Amino acid sequence: MRQIVLDTETTGLNPRTGDRVIEIGCVEIFNRKLTGNNYHRYINPERDSDEAALAVHGLTTEFLSDKPKFHEIAEELRDFINGAEVIIHNAPFDLGFLNHEFQRLKLPDFVSYCSGVIDTLVHAKELHPGKRNSLDALCDRYGISNAHRKLHGALLDSELLADVYLAMTRGQNMLSMDVEVEAAVVGEMLDSVPLGEIIVLKANDEEETRHASVLLGLDKAAKGSCVWRAYAPLPAPDA
């Protein structure tokens, strides 16, 4: 699956009052791997940024004055994201601006070129209700370094968000959350058992029956066959 992590910087907060997109950053993910095939453009908005917005992104009117205008990059942006699932933090904000820019050019809305949209802010609130879920907070929560982030930048924020998204959606890959303790215990076990003398204890009939009962409960909760059946198919216990 091809996914594009996207972020924008803008001159202000409201495209309906004339605010424009001034930077777009996109990071490509294919089958949950970063490809390095990224897209980044600064854009001349043909207007000044609000003071509050300028304090966030630091992109001055002078710096943007020789950059391409949005109509000059619209086609390449459309081609880059076409058919991909787009991942955005607080998607309504960025999509509102991008849809407005495309409408100004009498083109279909930006979202019409995407196969779908994932809002990582919504996902984070579901995973961490009542917690701070800004990009900086999520970087701290998932151990992703953002020490180099002094000002907001569309490409930098997209790169950080890509790492956050992959961390947030990878799932738990071990039964114990205490990695260091588990690693120490496993190491001690391996040290104490000479190679070639590992003992395998098979489940007895009672344990097999109890395990099958657990799988049946998971089947009912999933309203179908639970994923564990694919790895260790067992007959359902007698009712």
Results as ranks from 00 to 15, higher is better:
M1F: 10
R2D: 09
Q3T: 02
Q3E: 14
V5K: 00
V5R: 03
V5N: 00
L6H: 04
E9P: 10
T11S: 02
R16M: 15
V21L: 06
I24L: 07
I24H: 05
I24K: 06
I29Q: 13
F30M: 15
R32F: 13
G36W: 05
N37F: 06
Y39C: 01
R41D: 01
E46V: 05
E51G: 01
V56S: 09
V56P: 06
L64Y: 06
S65A: 13
D66K: 14
K67P: 05
K69Y: 08
E72D: 07
I73Q: 02
E75I: 05
D79S: 12
I81V: 15
N82Y: 14
E85R: 15
I87H: 03
H89V: 02
D94S: 12
G96C: 00
G96I: 00
H100W: 04
L105T: 00
L107C: 04
L107P: 02
L107M: 14
F110P: 01
C114Y: 11
G116K: 07
G116A: 06
D119F: 01
D119E: 03
L121T: 00
L121Q: 07
V122F: 07
H123R: 10
H123I: 11
K125S: 10
K125H: 14
L127Q: 13
P129Y: 09
L135E: 04
D136E: 11
D136I: 01
C139P: 02
Y142N: 03
Y142P: 04
G143R: 09
I144F: 07
N146A: 13
K150P: 05
G153P: 08
G153F: 08
L155S: 00
L156M: 01
D157V: 07
S158D: 04
D163N: 13
D163K: 14
V164M: 02
L166R: 14
T169I: 10
E182W: 09
V186Y: 05
E188M: 10
D191L: 08
S192Q: 09
K202S: 15
A203M: 15
E206S: 15
A212H: 00
S213A: 06
V214R: 02
L215I: 02
L216M: 09
L218R: 12
D219G: 06
A221L: 12
K223N: 10
S225P: 04
S225C: 11
C226L: 00
V227W: 08
Y231M: 14
A232E: 11
P233R: 08
P235F: 08
A236M: 13
P237W: 13
D238S: 15
